[in-house]
Amino acid sequence: MAFINLKDRVIQAKIVYYGPGRCGKTTNLEFIYSKCREQINSEMVTVKTQGDRTLFFDFFPFDIGKIAGYDVKIQLYTVPGQVKYNSTRRLVLKGVDGVVFVADSEAERRSKNISSLMNLQENLALYNKNIFEMPLVIQYNKRDLKKQGIEVLDVETMERDLNVELKAPSFEASALDGDNVVATLKRIISLTMSSLEKELENGDW
């Protein structure tokens, strides 16, 4: 649920990186955090386990500047991907305005991607949100693994597995190298903002 402050002319919106455990959600945020320092006036918050796995979420607010006279602040979050953390994953999704679904290109993670996407759909439904109406971008991450001789799924297969019905914009990316990380972010921000604009025009409030 975005918050629009008419007095100070500030908009806050929440974008969540979702996906199976170890698909690269945290790495996406780390890359953005290191490359866009001047737009981030906060430390990156991470709630993680000893073994560096996301336990609850990673977070920082990202200032994207003015849109239509409003200062727009995007709250970026990741969820914990591991299956057992579903209750915390749900908490992070509360009030979400846009989702990046990060899929792992490694061949052996194929079924994990599919079940994580179904889990996203279920968890959104708990908040009465329809995945088909949610601003959504899919990222096929870890494309660089191919160079290391690790078997990766081809993009057509991943599209067929994940995106036939959703028809969401998608990017091939490497969060580790930073390829298409910013492009993914820009796209979800623009989808989220136009969905907010539409809502305002329709006077849903």
């Binding site: 649920m1 975005a2 918050f3 629009i4 402050n5 008419l6 007095k7 100070d8 907010l196 809502e199 305002l200 849903d204 409030w205």
Partner: peptide, 12 residues
């Protein structure tokens, strides 16, 4: 659905 608050409410 967004939350929208104006000056009057925020000042209050």
């Amino acid at each position: 659905m967004s939350l929208i608050l104006g000056r009057q409410h925020l000042d209050k």
